[in-house]
Design a protein around this nucleic acid. Structure first.
Lengths: 226, 226
DNA sequence: CGTTGTGAAATGATTCACAGCT
DNA sequence: AGCTGTGAATCATTTCACAACG
């Protein structure tokens, strides 16, 4: 059983990558996978993979490896994606629209059940099957539709007030696409994605490659970045 | 002078955040900023800020702090965004379109100068001022337009072959939005952004918050990717 | 004063290497 | 044999704490 161990933050990031790789192995009907195979596929050592997984209990099989279906299921439990999470997108601009159309969210258990904007020209329009609502409707809809996650896709200048509204409405987490640090006073969990930061990371790597060198063990960026 | 020191990867990520914060201080006409102020704004310690900046030389002023304009300029040099980087977007789907319309890229020195897709229905159409080109045109256009960065916004199944084409064409770096690990054989620099991974990180944090606890020092994601 | 830059100490994460299971 | 789980060793990053400077 998990017991209560402290999980290194880099480990949590890698869990998502393990799951992504495992899902592609399920497709291929692969039955078992060793820490070596999994590590090679992701550019990690076998010891790293085993250490990461062992934080959550012992579900490998000596001599065999890990059963793909078992590990997949277990990782979903650990990450919390074995259940459904209702989410709202705030901001029906370019990024918001791209996210609404992103089919992968649903397959991962995240369902967009409401879309908000404060632009009168957009309110009432239907985008990707969602009628855009005014911000005033947020508190009621968060309650009615059991929305647990707010996806902030508004310009930097509006992001903090949107975050405050989401917190007041009672969401548990915020995925922030605005290029600003949101102050959430520990009221909710938060994860940020900033495209410009990602491009800058890349520019730095390139510039460095033109002169000095940096060890390239894994990718920076969010998710794997990172 | 910089000399040749090894730069910790976490430091590189924070440099982008420092720059983002400084740019907002420039707007407010703030002249100087201390490591304490900068750290507080980003949830970091003052020692962390100083250590990070000191990797690149000594440009703080004891008793005063850092001159905002000077540090801004210096960070741009370090990150490589004091120059122009021409980029191509591959994939004119939802994500590709959102990126084309993302004005912030240009302000950061990244200019999208070409867009490619392999869907006959999309080729030839003009989106956000860019005529969509067939993939066959990629090698010639990369050369003609001095494209240094490829932004991969195609489905996972097509991403590796697109990456190979970009490498063959001679780009220096790839920003990858496909949910797959690209094999680039050290030929180019790479940074990945995976929205589903970011959402899973958030789901994990929330699930954890409902039971145990995790130290919340900085944001995960990519940023905190990551 | 207030604030930087930086060795030294402390903390955190990865890798090693091997006992033990199948 | 092949592979996991894990303590011990190594390596990386952060924090401490203080001399030096304007």
């Amino acid at each position: 059983m998990p017991s209560r161990a402290r999980i290194p933050r880099p480990t949590v990031k890698r869990l998502s990558l393990y799951l992504r790789e495992l899902e592609s192995r399920v497709e291929l009907d692969q039955q078992t996978i060793s820490s070596k195979q999994l590590g090679d596929a992701l550019g990690l050592t076998d010891a790293q993979v085993r250490k990461d997984l062992a934080y959550f209990g012992q579900f490998g099989h000596p001599g065999i490896g890990y059963r793909v279906s078992e590990l997949t299921e277990r990782l979903r439990q650990i990450l919390g994606t074995d259940r459904k999470w209702n989410a709202a997108v705030i901001g029906a601009g370019n990024i918001g629209r791209a996210l609404m159309a992103y089919q992968r969210f649903r397959r991962k258990g995240f369902e967009i059940v409401a879309v908000f904007d404060n632009d009168a020209d957009v309110i009432g329009r239907v985008i990707s099957g969602h009628r855009v609502r005014p911000m005033e409707d947020l508190p009621d809809l968060v309650r009615e539709r059991d929305i647990k996650i707010g996806i902030v896709a508004v310009p930097a200048g509006a992001a903090q007030e949107v975050a405050d509204a989401l917190i007041d409405a009672g969401v548990l987490g915020i995925l922030n696409f605005a290029p600003i640090r949101l102050d959430v006073r520990d009221a909710v969990s938060i994860t940020s994605v900033d495209f410009s930061v990602s491009l800058e990371q890349l520019a730095f790597q390139i510039s460095l490659g033109l002169t000095g060198s940096l060890d390239e063990r894994d990718e920076p960026t969010a998710p794997r970045e990172g």
